[in-house]
Design a protein around this nucleic acid. Sequence first.
RNA 1: GGUGCUGUGGCCGAGUGGCUAGGCAGAGGUCUGCAAAACCUUUUACAGCGGUUCGAAUCCGCUCAGCACCUCCA
Length: 498
Amino acid sequence: MKRYEKFPIRLTNSLSSKKEEFKPIHEGRVGIYVCGPTVYSDVHLGNVRTFLCFDVIQRYFKYLEYKVRYVRNITDVGHLEGDADEGEDKISKKARLEQLEPMEIVQRYTNDFHRVSEVFNILPPDIEPTATGHLIEQIRHIEALLEKGLAYEVNRSVYFDVKKYNEHQQYGKLSGRNIDELRDSGRSLDSQDEKRDKIDFALWKKASPKHIMRWDSPWGKGFPGWHLECTVMSTKYLGETFDIHGGGIDLKFPHHECEIAQQAGITGTDPVNYWLHSNMLTVNGQKMSKSLGNSFLPNELFSGKHELLEKGYSPMTVRFFMLQSHYSSTLDFSNDALMAAEKGYKRLMSGLKNAESLEAPDGNDKESGQTMLQLADQCFLEMSDDFNTAKTLAVLFEMTTRINDLMTKPDELSKIPADAWKYFVGTYSEFIQEVLGLKKETAEDDKMLEGIVNLLIKLRSEAKISRDFAKSDMIRDELGKMGVRLMDGKDGTTFSID
RNA sequence: GGUGCUGUGGCCGAGUGGCUAGGCAGAGGUCUGCAAAACCUUUUACAGCGGUUCGAAUCCGCUCAGCACCUCCA
């Protein structure tokens, strides 16, 4: 029996706004597509949160023994600055400003994104396609839409005909809008619009003479619209209809709505069974974004060089901090919250260390084994309930208390049956490290350092035996200043590195 | 203006019609040469006003406050 049969997943589908049981299209397999970053600047912590949320989600699917194909793209062309018709391509603009080849911009920030992902222990996707690598597919898709009469060409640009699409299908079903309201929303007042209808969106844009990113197409030199790449790449690698599509909630409209229209316009059916949207990271209640100037870069966080931070925080502290909230809730970023998270993270890590240090028992007290089995199962139940990492952490802390307690109670430990203990410790350790992706950050694995500190501990205990507390305290204090904390227990002194 | 969401104790944050979330901080205790860690005990809640109900922080209505999307944004 596979784990996913024992612990079926329920998830909140943005399409229905309800929690539904997850049923894959192909038994035992899951296809997940997540909108990746537009690589025109450094990723900030708000971006990180989204990729972290979906990292944990895909990790959990894999842990449940699903065969997962996780696709997350890199947007390296087509994302326009400002209004969709007047704007300039983001990467093109950055390239012009920095006098670089556009692909240099793309490479630089793709590298940055990968580096940041690794630091936060966000696993790479199984496929990471780029928009520029799929221009032929995008052009083909536009041709298909033109053939269906769902797109029209104006002055060497091609637009999607939303009104036409809406005659047979429902544009706005994901974000709860209708096209009349959208037309009335009266945000933009541009006059020299090529579009037949203001709610139409670009599939292909003619490149102006100064525009440096350009490709040949049946409509002349130009570049693809932003929404198209995701439609093309998701269905290419996951099928015309696939299981899960994720992304930040700010992409729900118009981006994801357009994706649905572009695909459903051709196939007549919804391309995605379950839409998942992660919520925003906020600062003082406001969305973290570059344009508001309230964004944090990873390096500012690690160094603590930011006016809202009192000190630096490690990547795993931040990962822990983000996992304490549900992916669908906003999360507020503050120094106090990070400080609390830092301590919580350390408590969990020391629990993990303790769990590994305990010798496996082989007892026969069924009752004590039973509670351990229940706690372990509870981890699965919480994660299977819409990926509730906050509740999962609460269970892991209960397990931590249990483990710490057993550290000083060898009699109780020895009563626990071997299989119950194995399942308990295995689940504990794997949920922390494999599912939640929290890893140890200290240098405690350094053998030489361990030897040196143990030597000092020996010298100190000799001083203690001869009641030379001045010397023993000196050793402890000096090591403490270097971040090595000594703790006297019943069975001698142990140390941890902060 | 339209659509949707949120308001939980000192802080951060889960959650649900009746039973302790959890972390951090605070208080007391055990242990200790003293600490630290750990363990035990413990104080502060569900924005306001009405309604439904045997019972609501949880459902409904209104009010207030805030946020997101409707431009680019994870």
